[in-house]
């Protein structure tokens, strides 16, 4: 069952890597790259998540079933977000933004 062991040095290295990635993410956000910034920041977050998942949460040494749950979670969130966001970004016939005058509130 256990194919790879998480050892203390590995944990320390992962922690340092996470801190480095945090400052990398912080640094790129100061460069003023506009739209690309969000993409880079999220990509770095995904890498950090993978480090936490595989090392801190010991996913490397666990069964496939547990990995499957992670894969499905990731997949469903990505599809939920993509298909939802695709709606306002691709509207042609319908107004892309709601009309504030349509508010039902007094």
């Amino acid at each position: 069952m256990i194919s790879a062991h998480v050892t203390t040095p590995k944990l320390v290295v992962s922690w340092l890597a996470l801190l480095v990635l945090t400052f990398l993410s912080f640094g790129t956000s100061r460069l003023g790259l506009g739209e690309a910034e969000l993409v880079i920041a999220l990509a770095i977050s995904v890498v950090k998540t993978l480090v936490v998942l595989f090392i801190f949460m010991h996913l490397v040494e666990q069964r496939f079933a547990n990995r499957l749950i992670v894969i499905l979670t990731f997949l469903f969130i990505v599809l939920l977000v993509t298909l939802t966001v695709a709606d306002p970004l691709t509207r042609k016939t319908f107004p892309p933004r709601p009309d504030p005058a349509a508010s039902p509130y007094p």
Partner: peptide, 23 residues
């Protein structure tokens, strides 16, 4: 409490509620 995340008055979109509901 009037959280108003879907309220057009603040720019909220009622269609988004339908997205989440039907998901």
């Amino acid at each position: 409490f009037g959280l108003s995340l879907f309220n057009p008055r603040y720019g909220g979109d009622p269609v988004l509620f339908q997205h989440l509901f039907w998901f």
